[in-house]
């Protein structure tokens, strides 16, 4: 595992702030009617994407979930092409054909957000198969939620990866809800990582609000995969500060304000910022300057997206097949 240098700490923080500001603005744009369709945002879960992706290069692959913007940003996605995709513009990563739920960029190894819960796991296993087939030390990461751990795809992917000893890490972002159903009502276990034992792989639980903890646990699992020792199930306990979809969602009364506020006291960005301040690795002024510069990046990216053209209607049937 790469030693946790000050440079890496700084990069982790930048990554988390970029995700937070991207998502906050995406939420506003959706509320203003500028982004069509559903939008599942990553606010509250930033430490996981940042901590895992810090170990990866463009050659490593990930598969994502409904909640994929943070994963793509951390994997090297550019804000302008991402906003353009959320707007459905032709300049977006998917030429406006996929939107938020299918956002992808194969060039940086991001094999797509996915509209089907759990479907990314077997696909990541396939990417890991490629890595082994080609005798590389690349790894594939499958992000998924507590809800997805009840899908058959999770179980088949876990078993297949373990028995074929493939270089994949299954990263569970346990935010306590499968859509609107609390974990206690959708599975009879507390730790999704317990399921690893059933497949003969290590299961690790980590505080998903602490980016350094995620970084360290992910580093061990990824090292293990790169060395050919097989998959790991890494469960990160986290929380989504926004609703399942949208900022305020559909107004369902399924969790209390008190619960949300309790989790917000453990905001991963606040926790990490305080750590960096305490360690004198950053000043308030540094943090403010960084936020300003990222705000400018966000504004420029939104402007790019707004000014980009819609796909021409003649592209409707393009890319169904390749010739």
């Amino acid at each position: 595992m790469k030693e946790l240098t000050n440079e890496i700490l700084n990069n982790l923080y930048v990554c988390m702030v970029r995700i937070r500001l991207f998502e906050e603005n995406a939420g506003k744009l959706q509320e203003n009617g500028k982004i069509p369709g559903a939008l599942h945002m990553y606010v509250g879960e930033e430490a996981i994407a940042a901590g895992v992706m810090a170990h990866l290069s463009d050659q490593d692959q990930i598969t994502s979930t409904h909640r994929g913007h943070g994963h793509l940003l951390a994997k090297g996605g550019e804000m302008d092409k991402m906003y353009a995709e959320l707007f459905g513009k032709v300049t977006g990563y998917n030429k406006g054909k996929g939107g938020s739920m299918h956002i992808s960029n194969l060039e940086v190894g991001m094999l797509g957000a996915n509209g089907i819960v759990g479907a990314g796991l077997p696909i990541a296993v396939g990417a890991a198969f490629s890595n082994k087939f080609r005798k590389t030390d690349r790894v594939a990461i499958a992000f998924f939620g507590d809800g997805a751990s009840n899908e058959g795809a999770f179980h088949e992917a876990a078993n297949l990866a373990a028995v074929l000893k493939l270089p994949v890490v299954f990263v569970c972002e346990n935010n306590g809800y499968g859509e609107f159903t609390p974990q206690a009502q959708h599975q009879a276990i507390t730790d999704v990582a317990d399921r690893a034992a059933g497949y003969g792989m290590p299961g690790v639980v980590v505080d998903g609000m602490e980016v350094i903890a995620v970084y360290e646990a992910a580093g061990e699992a990824i090292d293990r995969a790169r060395k050919g020792e097989g998959p790991t199930l890494l469960e990160c306990k986290t929380y989504r500060f926004y609703d399942h979809s949208g900022v305020r969602g559909m107004g369902f009364n399924y969790r209390t304000e008190a619960e949300v506020e309790r989790w917000k006291k453990r905001d991963p960005l606040d926790l990490f910022k305080q750590h960096l301040l305490d360690q004198e690795l950053m000043t308030e002024a540094d943090a403010a300057a960084l936020a300003d510069s990222i705000r400018q990046e966000v504004e420029a990216a939104i402007e790019f997206a707004e000014n980009s053209p819609d796909p021409d209607l003649s592209t409707l049937l393009e890319d169904v097949y390749t010739n």
């Binding site: 692959q61 077997p122 296993v125 198969f129 795809a153 297949l160 028995v163």
Partner: peptide
Amino acid sequence: TPISEKGIVGLAVGAAAT
């Protein structure tokens, strides 16, 4: 493979995409 059709076809998708 194991008897695992979702795993088989899902693996194929990921392997092909890479």
